[in-house]
């Protein structure tokens, strides 16, 4: 392996490689059997060395996500990884990176107690949502800058089996696309683990 490639790999995992180069490097890794085998062996050695360590580095998780999200519209993930590390990020990163077996992610995001309020002004007065801006951005293929909302405290609102009941019952009445999204998210999620984490103090509204 030449020095330049080695340097790129180091930079990639030090969060110093440009996203475009990350993607190119990932593609090369996915195609180069020799390289793949070599790093596979290294992984076994590395895994043995660091077997005591339970979670992945948060920045790595974010960088891996950046590689995945070659789609410009999804470049937002980079914003997420630059955000201060939160309790779920290392776990989520690990889950993504490994392909994934276990982890957290029913995404049971429980919020702070909420005062049930009637439709507030900020909700009812927003009919002038910038739909035109949305469309123009889509048409122009402009990169989005979505920032993952702050993670509120996590606590199981309802037992996950009960939530599963609700999701399944509701899916019958969803639009075809909505149902696929809902059920896919539910199939992809891994219940329980997230809710079992120690509660985190609420950071504010999800929005």
């Amino acid at each position: 392996m030449n020095e330049e490639l080695d340097s790129q790999l180091s930079a990639m995992f030090d969060d110093e490689l440009a996203p475009a180069e990350c993607e190119l490097l990932a593609r090369r890794l996915s195609r180069d059997e020799q390289l793949k085998a070599r790093w596979g062996r290294y992984a076994v050695i590395g895994a043995a060395i660091r077997s005591e360590r339970g979670v992945l580095d948060a920045a790595l998780a974010g960088r891996v996500s950046a590689v995945i999200l070659a789609e410009p519209a999804l470049a937002a993930a980079q914003g997420a990884r630059r955000a201060p590390a939160r309790w779920w990020q290392p776990l989520a990163g690990a889950a993504v990176a490994v392909g994934v077996a276990v982890g957290s992610v029913l995404w049971l995001r429980a919020q702070a107690p909420f005062t049930a309020a009637p439709p507030s002004a900020h909700l009812t007065a927003t009919v002038s949502v910038p739909a035109a801006a949305v469309l123009s951005a889509a048409a122009a293929g402009a990169a989005d800058s979505y920032v993952v909302p702050r993670a509120p405290a996590v606590r199981a609102m309802v037992p996950s089996t009960e939530l599963a009941n609700y999701v399944v019952a509701h899916s019958v009445f969803s639009s075809p696309v909505g149902r696929r999204n809902l059920l896919s998210a539910f199939m992809a999620s891994e219940s329980g683990t997230a809710a079992e984490e120690p509660p985190v103090e609420p950071e504010g509204n999800v929005r």
């Binding site: 790093w39 290294y42 050695i45 995945i68 392909g99």
Partner: peptide, 11 residues
């Protein structure tokens, strides 16, 4: 090494 392999897997 681990990170790279994981990244390859995911990539």
């Amino acid at each position: 090494f681990i990170a790279l392999t994981l990244a390859w897997t995911v990539a």
